[in-house]
């Protein structure tokens, strides 16, 4: 029995909290991306690992340098910078010079997140900001696709990988077009199974559709992503490409090819679902998803680039505040007719 009273705090209720925390939610996404990341390393070897690490290093160092000293450890521990670096790394070509990957990571965090006020305040997806910057600055490096050496030659890196900073890269003679590039410029399709398991050329993490979906299912069960987002994006892409395919199967790619090629899956499952830059409301999420799907198909089919996921998501990011404003739920009890 207490002889003296305990020292009481007066924290207001509620005192109960659900267990998921923001930093854990971030780490959950990292875990979900692990299989696809490992597959990327399997196909592209050490070079891919170095690209990813450079991108992460660029992101974390920028976060550390430009954060106030007292907020540094908290910001690094929330794992969001790590996630941005990893997501950017996974969307880079495996033979990208490492210094470019580093700059990409730095821009992703600096221009994509910190200038907006840090985590939670940015309008655009940070890793896609970094990727768009790289695409505009190093157009050749960002569209030169080198074939993977496979696990046999894991330690063999590309000639371009170790290009000294601020020097242009020189590439091995052999390059391989991505399935989308083959489709767009040579009207040549890739077997679906290769797309599903990832035996194609392309960005490090976006080749294996199966593993990306697996991670997405894990995240959906952990409530780490809003299932409406990938479902609405993928369904609308299927619908729009399916309609085009029915019009002229010789000219337009099939819906399943569209689903599994390029960055659609990684974009739909891991980037469009970034809660900060996508709508809060369920109805808004559907609108955002269909918008992304429509833009992806428009850019891929009618635009100048073979791939359009990045711009589709960035464009819809800019519409998020507007979508949020017009999709507010009706407050309970409001707008009910009374006699």
């Amino acid at each position: 029995m207490n002889v003296t009273d305990p020292r009481l705090l007066v924290q207001p209720s509620p005192l109960l909290k659900q267990r998921m925390r923001t930093d854990q939610a971030m780490r959950d996404v990292l875990y979900a991306l692990l299989p696809a990341t490992l597959a990327g390393l399997w196909y592209f070897g050490l070079a891919a690992l170095l690209v990813i690490l450079s991108s992460i290093a660029g992101a974390l160092i920028t976060e550390w340098v430009f954060s106030p000293a007292q907020a540094r450890s908290a910001r690094l521990l929330d794992s969001s910078g790590l996630l941005t670096g990893l997501l950017l790394g996974l969307t880079l070509p495996p033979a990208l010079p490492l210094w470019m990957a580093f700059i990409g990571g730095a821009v992703a965090i600096g221009l994509g997140k910190l200038v907006w006020g840090g985590l939670g305040y940015n309008l655009f997806n940070p890793s896609l900001v970094g990727r768009a910057f790289l695409g505009a600055t190093f157009p050749i490096a960002m569209t030169t696709w080198s074939p993977g050496a496979g696990p046999a030659d894991f330690f063999q890196v590309y000639e371009s990988t170790l290009t000294p900073p601020f020097m242009q890269a020189s590439y091995d003679a052999v390059t391989a077009a991505t399935p989308l590039g083959l489709m767009k410029f040579e009207y040549q399709s890739t077997p679906l199974w290769d797309l599903v398991i990832g035996k194609t050329s392309g960005c490090i993490g976006e080749t294996s559709g199966l593993l990306l979906i697996l991670g997405g299912v894990y995240l959906a069960f952990r409530r780490g992503l809003d299932w409406r987002m990938p479902v609405s994006i993928l369904a609308s892409v299927l619908l729009f490409t399916g309609a085009l395919y029915l019009l002229d199967p010789a000219k337009y790619p099939g819906p399943l090819f569209s689903l599994f090629s390029g960055g659609l899956l990684i974009g739909a499952i891991y980037m469009a679902t970034d809660p900060v830059t996508s709508p809060l409301t369920p109805r808004g999420t559907w609108i955002f998803g269909v918008g992304v799907g429509l833009l992806v198909v428009l850019i891929r089919v009618f635009g100048g680039f073979p791939e359009g996921v990045m711009y589709a998501i960035l464009l819809m990011n800019s519409a998020t505040p507007l979508i949020d404003r017009y999709t507010q739920s009706r407050v309970f009890g409001k707008g009910i007719k009374t006699e």
């Binding site: 659900q18 925390r21 923001t22 930093d23 939610a25 908290a74 929330d78 969001s80 840090g118 985590l119 939670g120 305040y121 409530r223 809003d226 809660p275 900060v276 996508s278 809060l280 409301t281 369920p282 507010q328 739920s329 009706r330 407050v331 309970f332 009890g333």
Partner: peptide, 20 residues
């Protein structure tokens, strides 16, 4: 530790009065 709001929407889906 308190983190910034990442607009995850869990509160929106929890509010029985459909507030934001």
């Amino acid at each position: 530790t308190e983190y910034p709001c990442i607009r995850c929407g869990r509160c929106v889906e929890a509010c029985p009065y459909f507030l934001n």
